[in-house]
Structures are given as structure tokens and as C-alpha cells.
Design a protein around this nucleic acid. Structure first.
Lengths: 251, 251
DNA sequence: AGACGTCACTTGTCCTTACGAGTGATGACT
DNA sequence: AGTCATCACTCGTAAGGACAAGTGACGTCT
């Protein structure tokens, strides 16, 4: 390393130098970094050290690396999709879920039967091992190409009360809400938002770049008697999406 | 590698083998993995390959490594703190922000003067380079030790209308809302939630483990005339926290 | 002109070797 | 008994070499 070494490990010094250069605008977003050979030459370090430094920047999400081409400054430009989790109703009385409503199914929905786990039972207010309808969908935003995994879990108690639902567990959320309202439910929702690193299969199906977390949203839909009717789980790459909420103070 | 090699790189095969063992419950959460030397022996690979495999599992957040001790299966047990972003009002008319309200300041708040950037100007409905009050706080949940960074940005226009606010820009959010309500505002909030990997300084101040994203919440508080009054930005490690929202359909 | 093979460049993988540094237990010395 | 040095174990860092694999351009052959 040619510079004054402050923090500690060599590769961290190299990483810090490159990071500062990026944040200082020395390399434009999308522009290529020097090749590994050039970085070895510039900082007088071995290739493993250079690779270690670049790996650190990769883990921070600052740099994208393409095999055979080079390393490039990630062009952030913020989330491409704003998913509004605010739920409105059209004048005709139909529900509108802003954002996700316009998405398209990337492949055939997969419906199946399963049962509650410890986590899902708690959210739905049921015992464990109770039977559920399940439906997994892969959604795509045609404009941006952003992908999302949507899982809908419906207790048998709900489908018994709403016969249409048992026939169409793969219906769009808005349609499901309409069915529930048709039988007299006054709906409200409870959402919890988490973020974590994707598992390998999520990385591939959502087509996630390096170092991009997934937003994991669990929405429990409740009816008039405050009983949980449906559980929806949405997973989406956080690099491309943001969730928006509108909140009014209780009066 | 002793097993049949399917995917590709050796280290990925090793990583996959360990990952499956973890997910199959072969190693309990919190239990130590075999040491690097033992993994070299078991899979007949070199140390760099073993380290590469473990690094992959680290990046997935499956494994925690402690220098001098060993590698351990991360004990997830879900988020420790549920931060309710639902805003209620006490019978006396004071605001309550569930969750964050009980947090304590970990160090002295830092107040300063700054100006709007391209991003903040858009959220606040202002031009760029307009003057702002800023206040950065580091909050700690005494129960769980979870840490959060809270930044409050207040346009001069807001402090002029609410004289108390100019004197106490480091006030707690609930107190600020009370001040705004006292001058006749009917408040509502617009929040956007994103997740990304932390920058190095965020990693240290929030004391984040490996491979944990940060949840980044931007809350714009608006008054009676739907004009933006305040921008609050909350950053918190996603491994320990989840955000919860209650949503009612428009009627 | 077009198709295709080659070549130079890039990053990816894997090995060997060596030493530094944190941790905890063991055991000797005071 | 208590204190502290030592040691064996862990992971961390760094260097060197070698070859595989993806990419794009250049040049040749048809």
C-alpha cells in the first residue's frame, strides 16, 4: 500500500481507498474500476489482497463484478418500484392495491395444501398443524422487470365461510378482499416488515444481484370480529423496491 | 469433495453441503461448526476453499464466525423488537409512538444546520439547497440492546410557524407532533421503507453482525394543508427489528 | 461482405506456504 | 490459593503460482 495505513488489514486499507474514490465521485456510477492487475500495481499488493478488498466492496453493495469484463461502480439511482401498501377502495366499492395490482404473473401459480407452522399459527391465531390452503405466485412488474414472490395462506375456516375462495385460491389479492367483503366483513390489515439476506433459491428466482437484501412483508387480513382470515407473504428484492405507507393518527 | 459434485465450484459444493446440514438441523442454532482444519479433512479440500465456503454462508447470514473461537450457526429466533409505526393518541391527547417511544438516547443528540439535497428536497416539497435544521440521535432499546439512528430534518418554514420547535430540535418525535398539533395542524404521515447493506460507519455505530441489512424508514409528517412539515429518517439493523403497520381500508 | 477462429484481456477457482492474532485451559511459580 | 506465563487451538491476513472460464476485438478464411 502506498498510502498511510490507518485502520488495520491491508485489504481493508485498499478497500477504504477505493471506497473513498467511489464516494468522492472519482469513478462514475456504472464506470469500470481498474482491473485487478492494475490495482495490484497501484497499491503494490498481491492479487488475493486485491480480490479481498473488492469482495468487501461487493458485500457493501458498492460494486458489481462481471466475470470476464471487470468491476463496475453500482449505479444506485434508488428503488425503481414504489409499492404502496395503502389500500383504497374505488367508487364502485372494489379494492385497489396500488403498485402490486398492476403486476403480472411470471409463471403459473402453484396451489397446494399445507398446515400451520409455529410462526404462521401465531400470526393467524391458530394452533400448529392446522390445515391451510397455500398459493405461491411469482409476480413481475412489466415496466421495471422487478420480481416478487407472493404466498397466500388461507385457513380452512375462511374458505368454508367464503365458498368462492375455495375454488380460486390463486385469485388476486384485490379479488379475495372483494369476496371477503361480500360476505359482510369489514376488513383491516396488520403488516410486519422485515429484511434479511436471501437464500440461494430466492437469489435465483428473484434474480438478485450481490449484496441485495429481500424485503419480507407479512400481511394478516382481519375481518369484522378481528379474526385473522388470510396471511399474505410478499418477498421482493430491496434494491429495486420500496414500500410506502400512509398513516393517519387515531382521532 | 467426497460427495457427488453437481453445481459447479468446489467451494460452492462445500457450502451447499454445510448449508443443508444446518437446515436439516444437523447443527443446532448456536452450536459450533467443525473447525476449518476439520472441514479440510472431511471434504478433502484446501483451506482457502473451506474459507470461501464459510464466507458464502456468512454472506447468507447463516453462520457467525468469531476469531479464535470458531464458526457458529446463527441463532435466528426472529426479530427481537417489533417497532409499531402505527400512531395513536392517548386519552389526554398526547401522541404515542409505540416501540420507539420507550427507547433511550445512547449519546448526546447532535443538532446542526444543513440544507436540502436532491432527495430530501423532493420528499419535503422544497427546492434544493434550502436551509434545514438537522438533529441526529442514537437510540437504544434498553431491553434488547437494539440500536437505531434517528435523523430529524426540519425546514425553517416549520420552525418559524412553531417557535417552540426552533428551541428544541432534539425533542422526541411525540413531543414534536404535540407542538405541531398545538398550532392547529391535523397530522398525517407518509412513510417509505427500504433495505440495503450498511455502510462501514453504520455497521460500527449500530453494532451490526455480518450480513445484516439495515431498514431505512423515511417518514414525512404533513399538516392540515398537506404540506410537509418534518422529515424523519430511521435506520436500524434488520436482524433485530421488524416494523409493524396497521392499515384500514378507506371508506 | 460475412462467418468464424484466435488471442488478449478480464475475473473465477484452487492449491501451497507462512505468519499474525484472539481465546481458553493448563500448569508452574509466587 | 492466587497470579500469570505458556501452549494449543481457533480464525485472519498475505503472498505466490497455476489454470479455468467468460468477453470482446481483431484478423483470416470462405
Amino acid at each position: 500500500m502506498s498510502e498511510i495505513q490507518r485502520p488495520g488489514a491491508l485489504y481493508q486499507q485498499v478497500a477504504a481507498a477505493i471506497r473513498e474514490a467511489i464516494l468522492a465521485g472519482e469513478y462514475e456510477p456504472g464506470a469500470p474500476l481498474p482491473s485487478e492487475a492494475q490495482l495490484m500495481e497501484r497499491y503494490k499488493v498481491s492479487r488475493p489482497t486485491v480480490r479481498n478488498a473488492v469482495a468487501a466492496l461487493r458485500a457493501e453493495g458498492l460494486v458489481d463484478v462481471h466475470h470476464g469484463k471487470g468491476s463496475f461502480v453500482r449505479s444506485e439511482k434508488g428503488p425503481a418500484v414504489a409499492i404502496s401498501r395503502h389500500i383504497g377502495r374505488t367508487p364502485a366499492g372494489h379494492f385497489r392495491l396500488y403498485g402490486v395490482a398492476t403486476w403480472q404473473q411470471a409463471e403459473e401459480p402453484h396451489t397446494y395444501r399445507t398446515h400451520t407452522t409455529e410462526a404462521t399459527a401465531h400470526l393467524l391465531g391458530l394452533q400448529t398443524e392446522e390445515a391451510l390452503f397455500g398459493c405461491d405466485q411469482l409476480l413481475v412488474d412489466p415496466d421495471t422487470g422487478a420480481r416478487a414472490m407472493l404466498r397466500t395462506l388461507i385457513p380452512f375456516a375462511t374458505t368454508e365461510a367464503v365458498s368462492d375462495l375455495g375454488k380460486r385460491p390463486d385469485a388476486a389479492p384485490a379479488a379475495i378482499y372483494a369476496m371477503l367483503t361480500a360476505v359482510g366483513h369489514e376488513l383491516w390489515w396488520s403488516e410486519s416488515v422485515r429484511a434479511r439476506m436471501p437464500l440461494p433459491d430466492e437469489r435465483t428466482t428473484l434474480r438478485l444481484p450481490d449484496a441485495t437484501p429481500v424485503l419480507h412483508v407479512s400481511r394478516v387480513t382481519c375481518g369484522t370480529d378481528d379474526q385473522a382470515l388470510i396471511l399474505e407473504e410478499l418477498r421482493i428484492g430491496a434494491a429495486r423496491a420500496e414500500l410506502t405507507y400512509r398513516i393517519d393518527a387515531d382521532k
